[in-house]
């Protein structure tokens, strides 16, 4: 299992029966592969589907059934379609239980940066800002450090923010961390084989250690 699969699989354990869930593009989408068999959730796609199903067979691909990443999908039994205005009524209005998104940076206050790198890459925020502000619970799926090894979990975000005080849980290849308002980051779980010191060394922000600290199980 690679890091991305490990992260996606751990996040899938956060989902509860009946949840309305929006998965971002990339690693968050992989969470759908690991949804526990004994629960049913409704996946929301901001382009206008509640009840996104698996990828269709080639001959069943329909241009009128794509997800927010532009990929062909199916609609599950009980699914429904709606327009963008209604879709963001669901998102901004607090009717999404969990959103899972990638992040470039997150900090001790739960501030998130995931939509642009000034001067380099400006793909736009798409629905990310609405999702992190509107969803009841924001889970970040991210590699613990960047490709060059520098921390992405910071004291204070340096990149332009997506929103302030929104992240609830951060799941990485090294740890599961909760953001506690007005307190900071609490280390809840660490990857098997790692020590708390190793996780802290890879993290710029200060980590408080949960009294129930345990190893991540996937």
């Amino acid at each position: 299992m690679n890091n991305r699969e490990f992260i996606a699989k751990r996040i899938a354990k956060e989902l509860k029966d009946g949840d309305v869930v929006n998965l971002g593009i990339g690693m968050p989408t992989m969470v759908a592969n690991y949804i526990p068999k004994d629960i049913q959730i409704m996946l929301q796609a901001e382009n206008g589907i509640l009840g996104v199903g698996p990828k269709p067979a080639l001959e069943e691909e329909r241009p009128d059934c794509i997800d927010a990443g532009g990929n062909y999908v199916t609609a599950v039994k009980g699914a429904c379609f709606f327009d963008s205005s209604f879709s963001f009524c669901i998102i901004r209005g607090g009717h999404v239980d969990i959103t899972v998104l990638g992040a470039l940076e997150v900090d001790e206050e739960g501030n998130v940066a995931n939509w642009m790198i000034p001067g380099k890459k400006v793909p736009g925020m798409g629905g990310a800002m609405d999702l992190v502000v509107g969803a009841k619970k924001v889970i970040l799926a991210m590699e613990h450090v960047s490709k060059n090894g520098s921390p992405k979990i910071l004291k204070k975000c340096r990149l332009p923010l997506t929103a302030v005080n929104v992240a609830k849980t951060i799941v990485t290849d090294m740890a599961v961390i909760d953001v506690v308002p007005d307190k900071g980051l609490v280390l809840k779980e660490i990857a098997p084989g790692l020590s708390v010191e190793e996780v802290q060394r890879a993290t710029e922000a200060h980590l408080m250690i949960s009294p129930d600290l345990k190893f991540i199980e996937v």
Binding site: A45, P63, D64, C65, A75, F81, F82, D83, S84, S85
Partner: peptide, 12 residues
């Protein structure tokens, strides 16, 4: 009449 996820911004 619009089909499936093709409603998106077309309605507003």
């Amino acid at each position: 009449i619009m089909n499936g996820s093709s409603r998106n911004f077309n309605i507003v």
